[in-house]
Design a protein around this nucleic acid. Structure first.
Length: 779
DNA sequence: AAAAAAT
């Protein structure tokens, strides 16, 4: 490491993120001509954030507003010698710590850091696991600081300056490919400046924000320090909005009620008796709300969406059964967990259930989750409803609008009120149905509410965590949520593997509100004492069922156990079934279960086809299929095959890149970006890209290898036909596989014609979207 | 088989 420091100082950054240089350059050029090499090196990552840069730059110029904020400035000796002596010192040391972390690898070795004289309490805390994270201390710290606005500003500024780094980090990856990042960075300053955003910068999209930023430098500068306060102020103001909210909330609450209404029906169907039981149980449960009481948030668990449909569950837990129900309009899953009500505590429950199914409702473990009874939300129900109606604050609503989400999708309309009410939520929404916003927006709102009136302290521990199965998905989620969080002055950071920890740790030291990442690195940092989830009150699992698969669930469980007692849990996925049982049993209390009515394949915008081919024709047929206009995503079962296909296509004159776990993160990010940017039209990936990844206009998904699981099929095919667009999915199989394939499709509830195809078949031309007449030879 | 930590 030590070696790395220096040497890298100059070069590495370049190696690391070559792109940064480019982007940065432009950014810098625009903003501030002067930048020193040192800064480049250090801030290269941050470049975009511009905060750091801005801060530094300002130091000289506008300096004082930002002054406090710019850590780097401080470091360099720009140090603010302000009134609040005590706070200052702390700041300086904290700042240093933060900076060091941020510089991470380059500047020092971990050990060195720890030993460093300036290890302060914070450091001790963080580093010393045994100590764990001392909340008290922090609190104390916070207590002392709270002083004046000045102090506050300092914090702000400081964070901001550092911010860039975080962003950049993410940006590093995203930057190239995703303007979103830029977006964020730009957005940052403008958090509060809704108007500006509205005015146009925001809509301009990512890039726009940046610009907008440029446009309102003053504000940013100013707002930088004050913003936080303003935000708070806004909050209260919002409260005004909320005033209205109550109504809305009611409306929202009604939704659940609707659900209830639905229930009756269900009961009528046959679950009736149970329901009564359940009711009985419910009472008890509340009694021990005591446990939950901790969840300060939840008050409204009044409505319980879950019905214990144990009896009904007679069907096998097989996905097929599950699905079968699904198509039925609304409702589909039942996650019966009546017994939960009985159980004194979650843990107890687990023990009980697993050990002895003693309760009346005792569902055997496996059976329990087979069916999830969900309240379905019909599109009609949400017609005319706005995000504001659902209980989101005006800043968030505006941000959503700016992002193109003017009105809530059904899954959003369903889950947002429940999340805001503090309930645990299980929600299933078809791929591309807007799940990220469904949990992200209310999560931000809730975090905001939970710390209303409090200041965002330096080094505060995160209040919410979002777990995703792949790094790309984590990045993507952050891309969606960060602007929302920023709009209300909250910070997010990404914590995922494959990249140096330094920046991530630095961000954590400075303090973030929402952590988004993958299990491995998150657990790693927890174990290192660098990530404290003890104050984390909301945990989200995206692609929850996938996270529950063998080998994935344990780390997830361990991570969730680190979150605050009684923390709210949200599980989202396009395929949500009993697989989440392990987590639901342990972590969810009386969850609200939602799904969107009518979301079956019939209503899908995706066309499915299966080509039965001769194995020897496979390579050529694949090449022929991807030789087309429009973006094509090819799925292969193994990394090696993915690479091989990408090469094959390339050799055939069709630019293609691959995406899989054998590539380093930089390549992964770069290759995905190449597809999103359109520099290549063909991406060959393993299932790493099967879930969650959103690329706007993929109109053809080719499965070079048929998936083994129906869920995999659903997720892979969900990469196309996003947000109502049309898309086509072609699966290549050999004759021997027909039976398996038809079974899989049946489970997925997908109707797809099986067609025999040969190399020069017009069929291939048709599927590729080429005009049959075109006598083009591929390869 | 793949993914998720780092070494």
């Amino acid at each position: 490491m030590p070696k790395n420091k220096k040497p890298r100082g100059g070069r590495p950054s370049a190696n690391f993120e070559p792109r940064y240089g480019a982007n940065k350059t432009s950014f810098h050029d625009r903003h501030a001509g002067g930048r020193d090499s040192a800064r480049d090196t250090r801030d290269s990552r941050d470049s975009r954030g511009g905060r750091a840069d801005a801060g530094e730059r300002r130091t000289p110029a506008a300096g004082f507003d930002r002054r406090p904020g710019s850590r780097s400035a401080s470091h360099r000796g720009y140090r603010p010698a302000e009134e609040g002596g005590a706070p200052k010192q702390r700041w300086s040391s904290q700042e240093r710590a933060g900076r060091d972390e941020a510089r991470g690898i380059r500047n020092r070795a971990e050990s060195g850091r720890r030993e460093a004289p300036h290890n302060r309490d914070d450091r001790l805390r963080y580093n010393d696991r045994s100590t764990g994270f001392d909340r008290p201390r922090r609190d104390d710290r916070g207590g002392q600081r709270p002083t004046g606005p000045g102090t506050y500003r300092d914090e702000r500024g400081g964070q901001r300056d550092e911010r860039p780094r975080r962003d950049d980090r993410g940006a590093g990856t995203q930057r190239q490919g995703f303007r979103d990042n830029d977006h964020r960075d730009g957005g940052r300053p403008g958090r509060d400046d809704r108007r500006d955003q509205r005015s146009g910068g925001f809509r301009d999209d990512r890039g726009g924000q940046r610009f907008s930023r440029d446009d309102r430098p003053q504000r940013d500068d100013r707002g930088a320090s004050e913003r936080p306060r303003f935000n708070r102020d806004d909050r209260p103001a919002r409260s005004g909005d909320r005033t209205e909210r109550p109504r809305f909330d009611r409306a929202a609450s009604e939704r659940p009620r609707f659900d209830r209404d639905d229930r009756p029906r269900r009961d009528d169907r046959g679950a009736g008796p149970r329901r009564d039981d359940r009711g009985g149980y419910e009472r008890p449960e509340r009694s021990y709300d005591a446990d939950r009481a901790r969840r300060a948030f939840d008050r409204d668990r009044t409505q319980r969406s879950i019905e214990g449909g144990r009896d009904e569950r007679s069907r096998p837990s097989t996905g097929g059964a599950y699905r079968t129900d699904r198509p039925r309009p609304l409702t589909s899953d039942t996650r019966g967990r009546p017994s939960r009500n009985e159980r004194p505590s979650r843990n107890d429950w687990n023990a009980t259930s697993s050990a002895a199914p003693a309760k009346k409702f005792e569902p055997t473990d496996d059976v329990v989750h087979e069916r999830l009874e969900a309240k379905s939300v019909a599109a009609v129900e949400v017609d005319g409803v706005t995000f504001g109606d659902l209980g989101l604050g005006s800043n968030i609503v505006e941000t959503l609008v700016g992002m193109g989400a003017a009105t809530p999708f059904p899954i959003q309309a369903a889950s947002i009120p429940a999340v805001l009410a503090g309930r645990d939520v299980l929600a299933r929404g078809r791929t591309g149905s807007g799940k990220t916003i469904a949990f992200g927006a209310p999560l931000v709102e809730r975090v905001l509410q939970s710390q209303a009136g409090k200041r965002r302290e330096f080094g505060r521990s995160p209040r919410a965590i979002i777990l995703a199965p792949t790094r790309e998905l984590a990045l993507q989620i952050d891309r969606t949520i960060q602007p929302i969080a920023r709009s209300v002055g909250l910070f997010t950071t990404q914590i995922y593997g494959g990249v140096p920890q330094g920046r991530q740790v630095g961000a954590l030291k400075k303090g973030v509100d929402i952590v988004i990442g993958t299990p491995g690195r998150i657990e790693d940092l927890i174990n290192q004492g660098k990530l404290d989830l003890s104050d984390c009150r909301i945990a989200v699992l995206d692609e929850a069922d996938h996270m529950c698969e063998l080998g994935f669930v344990e780390p997830v469980q361990r991570i969730l156990r680190h979150t605050a007692d009684g923390s709210q849990k949200l599980l989202f996925s396009a395929t949500l079934d009993r697989e989440v049982a392990a987590l639901v049993d342990e972590f969810l209390v009386d969850p609200a279960v939602y799904e969107v009515a009518g979301e079956d394949q019939d209503s899908s915008t995706i066309e499915h086809r299966v080509l039965v081919i001769e194995h020897r024709d496979k390579a050529d047929i694949l090449t022929s299929l991807v030789d087309r206009d429009g973006k094509t995503l090819v799925f292969a079962r193994t990394r090696a095959y993915a690479d091989m296909l990408a090469e094959q296509f390339d050799d055939a004159g069709i630019p293609a890149v691959s995406l899989h776990g054998d590539l380093n993160q930089a390549k992964r990010t770069r290759n995905l970006e190449r597809l999103t940017s359109g520099r290549v039209n063909v991406l060959v990936a393993t299932d790493v890209a099967a879930r969650g990844i959103h690329v706007d206009d993929i109109d053809l998904v080719v499965q070079a290898d048929a998936p083994d699981e129906y869920k995999t099929y659903l997720h892979r095919s969900g990469r196309t036909g996003r947000a109502g667009r049309s898309g086509r999915v072609v699966t290549l199989i050999t004759r021997q596989r027909q039976r398996r394939m038809s079974e899989l499709l049946e489970r997925a509830e997908i109707d797809a014609p099986f067609e025999n195809a040969r190399l020069d078949d017009d069929l291939i031309e048709e599927i590729a979207g080429r005009v049959p007449t075109t006598a083009d030879l591929t390869a």
